[in-house]
Design a protein around this nucleic acid. Structure first.
Length: 875
DNA sequence: ACCGCCGGGTGCC
DNA sequence: ACCGCCGGGTGCC
């Protein structure tokens, strides 16, 4: 047990009932976090066969094909190069043989590569076994690693396995596109996952009478499912009992002890299907042992079947629901009785808290539910008090603030929320914790609770990595440890491995309930929505516009065909993008290009010119609706800056990177050198330009097309409201002039507005008060998901988006619950322009997504991307 | 016999 | 470990 002992000695003991396993998995987790900074950027250098020794001293079991993790043990007294081998569950299996350990220690300690192990055969004896080690790292470290390995007379096998790197800009942009396609596909996978499952496997369950709002059938199903998730002790289907052990079919690993089942899950129903109501029903209906929280005093908790162990009780039982009363005596002595409900709102005014309101709204007035709003400087931090509440509502901010101050676990000054043993923690708008580096995410992971729920309408917002945090919060073993998630799910899926995707689906399926507006229950739609129809309106350019357009197009074609001939399309992707965006802007309005337009394709000689080019690109990147996220914080870019290598980040994020890496600072996306002095941001001239735009206003064919539609619509039915959507906020500004001229009352919603202002605008637009606006000018990506614009039933999409899913999402803002009219969508497309080609490409998009999945070779994907550009430019 | 060979004892790092 | 390694016993075939 020496190895275990030393692992323990390394760590501050973090109290759990199984310190050995816990510490071991912490040690493993620790190494995982180190490498998290660049989780997918590794290239496979190669692999080699080695042996694991000392099996007889440890209890960890490993099956054929199982992955193992390698953990350095620098404190081992027999060999400071020691490398411990542990299985998926963190149980030690053995050690790497001495000579090989010396090699690994060198590589691992110098961070030259990440080393992963797989056991190729079943274990043949009790003393040693084979292990295949693979080395993953940055391209620039490949030579050093290979040298280390060969100089110690080991042979590195470099197989034909597809490797992928994000080494150059072109590849990066292309693969971020592929990832967005993957995301679309994953979203579809999410949406389809539960289509066939609901009716036969999930029953319905009535809420207790304390819930005064009647549940719809799909909400009763969700309640039933949630109760099963909390009460049922059966393991998910990817566990099998084999030879007295628990065998995980995803990781091919076995454990002796029954794995801890997730008590809870992800309720990922679409916005508006009633997640909050269902959760309130759960809170009241499924307290301890499947009993309601609010029961009449006459039915004592101590009585009868309540004492039976949970697994011996029928899982779906009907209770008699009398007038609910809360008796504190009933609850006294129970250790975990309180729900912690965490939500996004920072509004501290007691009476306007939305979650408090929905509790009040859905719970009978005669039910005395102790609900405490835990925020504001005067909040009661007493843990006994908190424990005595039925429900505590708090915010992510409060949680993480307390956690960071106290360090979460330090005795004496511990965060009250981290001290209480909760019965259940519910994360409202759970996608907020998708960034594992954020304090609030770390704080959430450390909460002590029996049951865990995540409510979110958008389980995957940007990419797969978002999901890990949710899995980690649920403690879905073993994927709550990053290494296993990365190896079993993340890397295979991002490399287009079908098995990886299947595994992901299996995993998601066992903890998630997701229905969309279009899901069906018992052959009937979950909710019935009015029809929606799309029509494409072709716009002819005027003679003069056509001439100008052709000029710009010819110029762009010349540049791009040169890149195509040179094979440097992807390398000059920023330029290519700029040309395409200019043409698309032209299709909307000639003045969209702005005065800062520079000649693309001409190499910038002076810093001033480079700067101007970068600003143009920055504007393009942020203005195209391409859903730009900062690769450092994974959130939408705030205070945008662009690097010389043309990548956009939040200024504080990239500044932090540069500060910590100093002279060696490299762009997190392309690994190009970056310096703080070379970060370029927007000049403060936007206002000026805007007014310039309006002073010499002129119309365009597309403006005319829109205006005639709007005028016709108003003359036919002046109660119909419209969304006018563009990716170019400057175009929205241009549109304001004719709208005013024709006397349309309108509001505008774009990404530059504060949350408060957005809420105002939305309220104004949704209001049916006389004189409220008929039109909303909407920038394609403004507002994010979930905003409700159901007052509108007409949508005018002024310019096509790269990603059709973004358009759908936008339309969904009015085609949703609460929509009374049929929704008509008009897409304006300029005839004989890039826009037409974009629409064609949109149609092929699904095929391309399939291709992205089918291929392992990133080269192929890039080729299809180049083809796409050629198609756009008709080359 | 300062070797080779045999066979028993032994075994992670 | 049905190995390798170590060290003692042994010694033509």
């Amino acid at each position: 047990m020496l190895g275990v002992h030393f692992a323990l000695a390394n760590k501050t003991s973090d109290s759990t009932n199984d310190p050995v396993t816990e510490t071991l998995s912490q040690a493993i987790r620790g190494t995982g976090e180190e490498l998290d900074r660049e989780p997918d950027t590794g290239v496979l250098f190669g692999s080699l066969r080695g042996s694991v020794v000392g099996l007889r001293y440890y209890t960890g079991v490993v099956n054929k094909g199982e992955m193992v993790s390698l953990v350095r043990q620098p404190q081992n007294p027999y060999d400071r190069n020691a490398v411990m081998v542990a299985n998926v569950y963190g149980s030690q299996v053995g050690h790497i043989k001495r000579e090989l350990a010396a090699l690994l220690a060198n590589i691992m300690d110098n961070n030259l590569a990440r080393v992963e192990g797989v056991v190729p055969f079943g274990v043949k004896n009790q003393f040693t076994m084979s292990v295949v080690l693979s080395f993953w790292g940055k391209e620039e470290n490949r030579d050093a690693v290979v040298r280390q390995i060969t100089s110690r007379s080991f042979k590195l096998q470099t197989g034909p396995t597809g490797t992928h790197t994000h080494a150059d800009t072109g590849t990066l942009i292309a693969s971020s596109w592929v990832i967005s396609c993957l995301t679309v596909c994953l979203k579809n996978a999410f949406d389809n996952l539960f289509e066939n499952l609901m009716e036969d496997k999930i029953g319905e369950r009535e809420a207790v009478e304390a819930v005064c709002t009647p549940l719809l059938p799909h909400q009763k199903q969700a309640l039933s499912w949630m109760c099963v998730c909390e009460n049922n002790v059966a393991l998910p289907h990817f566990w099998e009992v084999k030879g007295g052990l628990f065998y995980n079919t995803l990781t091919h690993s076995s454990v002796r002890e029954r794995p801890q089942r997730v008590r809870g899950g992800i309720l990922a129903d679409d916005m508006g299907l009633g997640k909050t109501l269902t959760t309130i029903a759960l809170i009241l209906s499924n307290f301890h042992h499947g009993k309601p929280l609010c029961e009449p005093v006459s039915c004592s908790f101590a009585g009868g079947s309540c004492l039976l162990p949970e697994h011996r009780r029928p899982s779906s039982q009907s209770h008699s629901h009398h007038l609910p009363l809360i008796s504190t005596q009933q609850l006294a002595g129970e250790k975990t009785k309180t729900l912690l409900h965490i939500c996004a709102h920072t509004n501290c005014q007691t009476h306007t808290h939305p979650n408090k309101q929905s509790l009040d709204q859905h719970v009978r007035a005669d039910v005395k539910l102790n609900v405490y709003l835990y925020y504001g400087s005067e909040r009661n931090r007493d843990t006994h008090f908190l424990s005595s509440q039925h429900v505590v509502l708090t915010t992510y901010n409060v949680l993480s603030a307390e956690y960071s101050v106290s360090g979460g676990w330090v005795c004496g000054s511990a965060s009250p929320l981290h001290t209480v043993s909760w019965l259940r923690v519910v994360l409202d708008e759970g996608h907020i914790i998708r960034n594992p580096n954020a304090q609030q995410s770390k704080a959430v992971l450390k909460l002590n609770t029996q049951r865990r729920w995540i409510l979110t309408g958008t389980p995957i917002q940007n990419n797969l990595r978002d999901l890990w945090m949710l899995v980690a919060f649920l403690r879905l073993k073993p994927f709550d440890v990053r290494e296993w998630w990365n190896r079993v799910i993340q890397r295979p899926v991002t490399q287009g491995d079908k098995t990886g995707l299947q595994n992901l689906q299996a995993l998601v399926k066992c903890v998630t309930l997701r229905r969309t507006k279009t899901s069906r229950v018992c052959g009937r739609p979950l909710v019935s929505l009015p029809e929606r129809s799309v029509r494409i309106e072709e716009v002819e350019l005027t003679q003069k516009e056509r001439e100008e357009y052709e000029l710009a197009r010819t110029e762009g074609r010349t540049t791009i065909s040169r890149y195509v001939a040179e094979g440097t399309v992807l390398k000059n992707y920023a330029d290519v993008l700029a040309i395409l965006v200019r043409l698309r802007q032209f299709c909307c309005h000639p003045d969209l290009l702005g005065k800062t337009t520079t000649h693309t394709g001409v190499v910038a000689a002076t810093p001033a010119e480079l700067r101007e080019r970068l600003i143009v690109k920055l504007r393009l990147v942020l203005g195209t609706g391409s859903d730009e996220e900062c690769a450092v914080c994974l959130n939408s870019v705030r205070l945008p800056v662009i690097t010389h290598c043309a990548h956009v980040y939040c200024r504080p994020c990239i500044a932090q990177v540069i500060r910590s890496e100093q002279e060696q600072a490299r762009c997190p996306l392309c690994r190009g050198q970056i310096k703080a002095s070379e970060l370029v941001e927007f000049p403060l001239e936007e206002e000026e330009e805007g007014s310039n735009l309006l002073e010499n206003w002129r119309s365009s064919s597309k403006v005319e097309a829109l205006m005639s539609s709007l005028l016709r619509l108003r003359s036919e039915d002046d109660s119909i409201r419209s969304l006018v959507v563009s990716q170019f906020t400057r175009f929205l500004t241009i549109l304001e002039i004719p709208l005013r001229e024709e006397g349309f009352k309108f509001v505008r919603l774009d990404g530059t507005m504060s949350q408060k202002r957005r809420a105002q605008v939305i309220q104004e637009f949704q209001s049916d008060a006389p004189g409220s606006p008929l039109i909303m000018l909407l920038s394609l990506k403004a507002g994010g998901v979930g905003i409700n614009l159901s007052a509108a039933s007409r949508v005018f999409l002024m310019d096509p988006a790269w990603n059709p899913a973004v358009e759908d999402q936008c339309v969904d803002r009015c085609h949703r619950l609460g929509q009374k009219r049929d929704v008509v969508i008009t897409k304006f497309i300029v005839k004989g322009s890039v826009e037409e080609n974009m629409v064609k490409i949109q149609r092929q998009k699904q095929d391309l997504v399939e291709k992205a999945f089918g291929t392992k070779n990133p080269g192929e994907r890039n080729t299809s991307r180049v083809d796409e550009i050629r198609a756009l430019m008709e080359l």
